[in-house]
Nucleic acid binder design. Structure first.
Length: 276
DNA sequence: GCGGAATGTAGAT
DNA sequence: TCTACCTTCCGCT
């Protein structure tokens, strides 16, 4: 399930598989069919991630825009003899290196997109319009947190609400916001304008670290090894590991986890480690 | 088989 | 502020 790290990971993988190649574009499910036909057989110049958004730069100059939303996902499959495997479920957009050419000199890659909130083919300026309403992306090179700090300092809204607002900072979702606030020891309902500079810098540093870790791991693991109580050399358990998100008891102190509504969604927190 | 929940957003009100 | 919607998966009957 997608927060910013998932998107950046997808972009990396898709650039490895598709960048600079001629791509068959289709929409087995049909809802992207008209747009797919316009770029079918075009060269995909690159896939660009920003926050939770993906931009597909096509040689035609048009920009594919994908946002996974809550349910969207990519599936990758490989085929040796040209024909991609049959799509599983409702596939909105299929990108494949299998172009029907006679000679196949390596395995073909097919990437299927299902369940996205957004999947569109837009004029070139659409990308800039979207970027204009997004805050800094902690996974972007040379990201500058200043605009995020300014917005938080000027706002009475709870910090948990602000961290979920993509115009403040792009790429954080409901898991990371809870985990970030836990790690920096800030109560989710603290108003933005009450945070001091040290707290803002701690939030940014923690956010960058967590998302980068998630990008490397391909899953959300926010818990420090030392807090897991593992024997030396023991491997981390599978699955995602959080301090407070969806937990009953705080992983650090054992206190009962509470939730509070912020940004229209439940924010998990530890009443002991994150005093009001 | 059905219903609910899930790491999200956009558009209506 | 609310509601609709994208799909999958899991637990319940």
């Amino acid at each position: 399930m997608p927060e910013g790290h998932t998107i950046h990971r997808a972009a990396r993988q898709q650039n490895r598989a598709l960048k600079g190649r001629t791509i068959s574009v289709s929409s087995p499910q049909g809802r992207f069919a008209a747009d797919a036909a316009r770029i079918d057989g075009a060269v995909l110049e690159r896939v660009e991630p920003y926050g939770k958004h993906l931009f597909y730069h096509w040689e035609t100059g048009e920009i594919g825009h994908v946002h996974l939303g809550l349910f969207g996902r990519f599936r990758t499959s490989y085929s040796v003899l040209g024909d991609p495997t049959a799509p599983t479920g409702a596939v909105r957009m299929r990108l494949s290196t299998a172009t029907g050419a006679d000679r196949v000199d390596r395995a073909e890659v097919t990437i299927d997109l299902s369940g996205p909130t957004v999947c569109s083919l837009d004029p070139p300026d659409a990308r800039a319009q979207i970027l204009r309403r997004l805050g800094p992306d902690p996974l972007a090179r040379k990201a500058d947190p200043t605009p995020m700090f300014d917005r938080i300092r000027r706002s009475r809204r709870p910090i948990a609400d602000l961290l979920l607002d993509q115009a403040v900072v792009a790429g954080i979702g409901n898991v990371y916001r809870a985990e970030i606030l836990f790690v920096v020891g800030i109560h989710p309902l603290r108003p933005g304008d009450e945070l001091d500079d040290a707290e803002l810098h701690a939030i940014w540093a923690t956010t960058c670290g967590m998302l980068a870790q998630g990008l490397r791991d391909g899953r959300i693991v926010t818990v420090d090894r030392n807090d897991l109580g593992l024997a030396p050399g023991a491997r981390r358990p599978r699955g995602e590991a959080t301090y407070v998100y969806k937990r009953r008891a705080c992983l650090r102190c054992g206190d009962t986890i509470r939730t509070v509504e912020a940004g229209g969604r439940p924010c998990y927190y530890c009443p002991t480690d994150q005093e009001a």
